[in-house]
Design a protein around this nucleic acid. Structure first.
Ligand SMILES: [Zn+2]
Ligand SMILES: [Zn+2]
Ligand SMILES: [Zn+2]
Ligand SMILES: [Zn+2]
Lengths: 153, 153
DNA sequence: TTCAAATTGTTATATTATTACAAAAACAAG
DNA sequence: CTTGTTTTTGTAATAATATAACAATTTGAA
């Protein structure tokens, strides 16, 4: 039901981490925001805003701004990332040590794996510095087929 | 008017290259497709599809599918790239040797520079291979401020 | 209690992109 | 050239993604 691993703990871990972060930063982790984050974490794939909206709509009578505002809050605080190549959103798997991350997107099972702190980031920094470019934000999204799917395939 | 360099040659170079590529591959480089590519190349920034549409509309009575189809053709044949983080399109600056490219996007002057064949690509390949991931497509878009803008700033 | 700030609700609209089907143009074969 | 097929373009409708503007509510602090 939840993919390849015991996924319940992913959600609960993420929620605990989010709680801690919000508490530490004096942010209001409201019911709505919590609920949206839970929905984002229902699986390890990226979720579309309007799918979140539909799910939310059962409890709340949500309209687009509701979900986009929650996503904005979650993104600003590093709890969620937007995958630009999919126009979709994914929970951050390590919000406390998120730096120079990138994403491996399996086009077979749709899981998104977040990777971090690697030589890739170093290479990007070097290359960019060599060009005299002052970089703020890196979007690195790699589409392909994950190992599990290759083995199954 | 055209940014920092003598830009006319960029357009004409790109059109010649496009001509050659289409001829070599037996593709139909129609008036419409040619026109769209010219419009994309009017500057070195990324262009929105609906801005192209407006410009096109003066001559043709273009509707969205017209421009999206032309962009699709141009993308398939490596003459144009989509910048996912901007939902916008940019002319390929080296369509014949385009491999493992990435983009430096200046948020001040909006120019997009396409870089290619670097250590970054190598690092990506290594990292991804280390994860057992079979990658097809890499989206690497780096937002920041270009050197010229830093000097002027 | 009162006030200001932050959050949420609501309506409308903007932006980006695709589907479906009809017309026209280009091409290949006879 | 004519015919039939494929590719391209036109057109209308609609889907998918996202934001603006303003009102109502909740929250937390003074
Ligand atoms: Zn992260
Ligand atoms: Zn997979
Ligand atoms: Zn290119
Ligand atoms: Zn610049």
């Amino acid at each position: 039901m939840y993919g390849r691993h015991e996924h319940d703990s992913c959600i609960s871990d993420a929620m605990v981490a989010a709680d801690d972060i919000c508490k530490a930063r004096g942010l209001r982790f409201t019911e709505l925001r919590r609920h949206v984050l839970e929905l984002v974490w229902e699986n390890h794939g990226a979720v579309k805003a309007y799918d979140l909206l539909e799910k939310l709509d059962k409890d709340y009578s949500a309209k687009p701004p509701t979900v986009y505002r929650a996503l904005e809050f979650l993104q600003e605080n590093g709890l969620v990332h937007k995958i630009n190549s999919l126009n979709a959103y994914v929970g951050c798997s390590h919000p406390l040590k998120h730096t120079d991350c990138f994403f491996l997107i399996c086009s077979n099972c749709n899981e998104v794996q977040e990777c971090c702190g690697s030589d890739v980031a170093k290479a990007v920094r070097n290359m960019v510095a060599g060009q005299g470019f002052a970089h703020n934000q890196t979007t690195l999204e790699i589409e392909g087929v994950c190992q599990e799917c290759q083995l199954e395939g």
